[in-house]
């Protein structure tokens, strides 16, 4: 059956997920400066989008992007984020994949949007600072860290901040995809590799 994922596809997913992850890891080192911590996911989305766009040129079947999302969600989870981060990875991958499938995996412009959607898997990384985890997390820190810290952090991370981060990630993904498509045209198309 033409549409089932074959070995070549699976290997492709493996190497590109590895590349994506490594690139993101490098980008994330920037984010340990506290002020930039909020922007860090967006930066990762931006840089990671470049190899992701290359990956998309090799993806012509449904399932590849979903699996990448699953793998990245899995890694996020295994790195110590709460379990919904796995679901976020799966969801981001699945939705991006479904969107890309609907465009027939053909258009670069549409891939940009797909990339933006996919980048949202990074929300899983930011999850512990927000929502339900937020209160329990903050409260658990109060006795240890003191009121000053907890109040400050609470001010920095109100729930609505989560949505802001989400938007920055999405924009980062779009921007990165745009840069990525330029790079693809400049190098890969010209070299006959994409």
């Amino acid at each position: 059956m033409k549409n089932k994922l074959n070995t070549k596809d699976l290997i492709s997913i493996g190497i590109f997920t590895a590349l994506y992850f490594v690139v993101i890891l490098i980008a994330s080192f920037v984010g340990y400066i506290p002020i930039l911590m909020v922007l860090m996911p967006a930066l990762c989305a931006l840089i990671g989008a470049i190899p992701f766009m290359l990956f998309l040129t090799r993806t012509k079947k449904f399932g590849m992007v979903t699996i990448m999302g699953i793998l990245l969600g899995l890694i996020t989870f295994l790195m110590g984020r709460p379990w919904p981060s796995l679901l976020i990875g799966v969801a981001a991958g699945l939705i991006a994949d479904m969107y890309l499938k609907s465009t027939g995996f053909a258009s670069i412009k549409k891939s940009t949007l797909g990339c933006g959607i996919f980048s949202l898997w990074l929300l899983g990384m930011a999850l512990p600072l927000f929502f339900g985890y937020h209160d329990a997390y903050m409260e658990s820190m109060r006795p240890g860290y003191g009121d000053a810290y907890v109040d400050m952090l609470t001010k920095l991370t109100p729930d609505w901040m989560f949505w802001i981060v989400m938007v920055t990630i999405f924009i980062g993904g779009l921007l990165g995809a745009w840069i990525g498509s330029k790079i693809l045209k400049k190098h890969f198309a010209k070299a006959g590799m994409a």
Partner: peptide
């Protein structure tokens, strides 16, 4: 399933090569 294990194995195999 294979759809997860194969990419995962390839990832591990590829990290050292990437570096």
């Amino acid at each position: 399933p294979d759809q997860i294990t194969i990419p995962l194995s390839v990832m591990f195999r590829f990290f050292p090569t990437l570096s």
